[in-house]
């Protein structure tokens, strides 16, 4: 099904963005010199990926519609569970401030970050492990563009837009119920930390999928992804006590998935109001964690590539 979609694009001859015509001339190298380093335009390639994926999704419209509907059913059922919980309790955790609509702001943030990372990267991460198993990674390595970039964004799932839109609507509704609108500074901080959250998730995903080079196959990637993000689905305040504290510490500082959703969501619920040291340490830490996550995952990816042995070719 997918292959049909792909071959269709190649027949139509999409613009090849990775080799703009006058590139060699611009760099000032004569034709006899060693091959000029190609400088593909990453934004144009990314735009092409977005467009191609949309064309592919629209080619198989029924499939796209079913994907969207089933992911929305999942989202609605989850929402139903939380509505049910708030039938019984006014708050998640005594004194934490996560009442119904505060929590729905949290849930909206979870939905946005999850659908962005799923839509942009998850299919690619799973495909990477298949590329490694089949040896088709060879063709990706040959392309004159950063391998990690190509591997991460090749295929974008537009059906993830459904839950994303739902998350936004849920957040607008919650603001309405709370009778409060965030100021411009809060919105800017929120968007910034949303991007940090996505980057943290992405780092984890790409690092995990590139381990397939060592293990040959990584079938449980999807399961593992579900289990890891399962910890970040709730406000970090719920992890307390003799077992909860070490757990919160681990998933904040060692594998920083807890800050991915918690920090942006807190920006909305408790707009940055620096009163205690704890109010700014975590937001600052999140920036550090994002940068470290991106750096470490790139390192893991490149280390893994060094061990790539090109299967079955």
């Amino acid at each position: 099904m997918d292959n049909r979609g792909l071959s269709q694009f190649s027949q139509h001859g999409d613009p090849r963005p990775n080799q703009p015509p006058g590139d060699a001339a611009k760099t000032g190298l004569s034709p006899s010199a060693p091959p000029a380093p190609l400088r593909p335009s990453y934004t144009r390639v990314a735009y092409t990926f977005l467009r191609n994926s949309l064309v592919r999704d629209m080619t198989f419209r029924a499939n796209f519609l079913i994907d969207t509907i089933s992911s929305m059913v999942w989202v609605l059922m989850n929402l139903g569970f939380y509505v049910l919980i708030f039938e019984y309790t006014p708050m998640i955790g005594a004194g934490t401030g996560w009442g119904k609509y505060q929590f729905f702001l949290f849930l909206g943030t979870t939905l946005i970050i999850n659908s962005l990372t799923r839509g942009l990267f998850l299919a690619n991460a799973i495909e990477l492990s298949e590329h490694i198993r089949n040896g088709t990674l060879d063709f990706i390595l040959l392309k004159p563009i950063d391998t990690q970039f190509l591997v991460s964004l090749g295929r974008i799932e537009w059906s993830a837009l459904g839950p994303l839109g739902f998350g936004l609507v849920l957040m607008l509704h919650s603001f309405g119920q709370l009778g409060y609108a965030p100021g411009p500074v809060t919105v800017v901080l929120y968007v910034f930390y949303l991007a940090c959250g996505c980057a943290i998730y992405y780092s984890l995903m790409i690092a995990m999928s590139s381990t397939a080079i060592w293990f040959g196959r990584n079938r449980s990637l999807l399961d593992f992804w579900f289990y890891i993000t399962n910890f970040s689905r709730y406000p970090m305040e719920i992890y307390r006590g003799p077992w909860g504290d070490p757990l919160r510490w681990t998933f904040t500082f060692l594998v920083p998935v807890l800050v991915a959703v918690n920090i942006p969501a807190r920006m909305l619920v408790r707009p940055l109001d620096v009163r205690t040291a704890a109010d700014w340490t975590l937001p600052v830490f999140t920036i550090v964690a994002t940068l470290a996550g991106l750096a470490v995952s790139r390192w893991v990816f490149q280390r893994a590539l060094l061990s790539y042995r090109s299967a079955s070719s």
Binding site: T89, I92, A94, G95, I238, Y239
Partner: peptide, 17 residues
Amino acid sequence: TQIFLWQAIFSAIEVER
């Protein structure tokens, strides 16, 4: 995760209700 979630919920209903 479920244990911690329900712990938080039960602690809230105990305090609030």
